[in-house]
Amino acid sequence: MAYQAEISRANPTCFFFLIDQSSSMLDPIMGVAGNPRKTDFVADALNKVIQTLIVTASKDVEVRRYYQIGALGYGGENEIIPAFGNSFGEQDLVWIDELYSKPLRVEDRARKESDGAGGFLEVSTKFPIWIDPVANGRTPMCQALERTKEILEKWTKDHRLSYPPTVINLTDGEANDGDPRIPANAIRELATADGNVILITVHASSNQFSQQLFFPDNSESLPDEPSRLMFEMASPITSSMLKTSEEILGIKLQPNARGFVYNAGIEGIVSALEIGTRPANLR
């Protein structure tokens, strides 16, 4: 059975994030004035995801090498940019303990905590930043997918026994450099002995009145060609992701649901990232 490999230091897994950095990401999420800009929200959500992955890899006082992480931004004039800035030079993939050691910076943020008497206290908390918001130019999604395929092709050959990589593509629109189904299919065809690479697309909403669709199992309810295309790009979700979805969302998904969230709002993006990155087989 696929997707059963234990994630360990001997057989680590890989998470790969693709971030749409086109200029439309400057708009507020769900198109509601006052909401955070999509680019800011996505960057923050990914920084939290990295924090969570570090905590899951934390063992006593060290961070164990259970995961390698990749992150590419796509935008500008058809540019593919490492989303971790210049911290890691030419490295395509970064070990989770290296990320822990080298954030871009650590910010002080306010967080609400229970005061134990029914109220809340605002406490200052350290918030490491690895990914900054960037938004300008076009949406070269195909190029980004092609580059991801090159990186993961090598990775899957080098890690035959590992739980396969999970790729999460965060976007608010359509590719303007071709048909992304072609490189997406090539990514999904990559495999370790434990299963094929998993590709999840999280589509951030630009319109509060559009219906959010969470992990649909068919494309019939999707409104247009671009959304059906994104559905076709996505992998079927794994049984452990189905389980996590039920736990987080409280709803039972269809067994052949695809890793695709359409018109995701704030909660939708956070939930989709959690479902995609919760390591199910960590021992």
């Binding site: 905590v55 934390s58 006082v61 961070v63």
Partner: peptide, 11 residues
């Protein structure tokens, strides 16, 4: 007795 880094404190 340990001076724990943030990830270890969370864990």
């Amino acid at each position: 007795k340990y001076d724990l880094p943030w990830h270890a404190e969370e864990k």
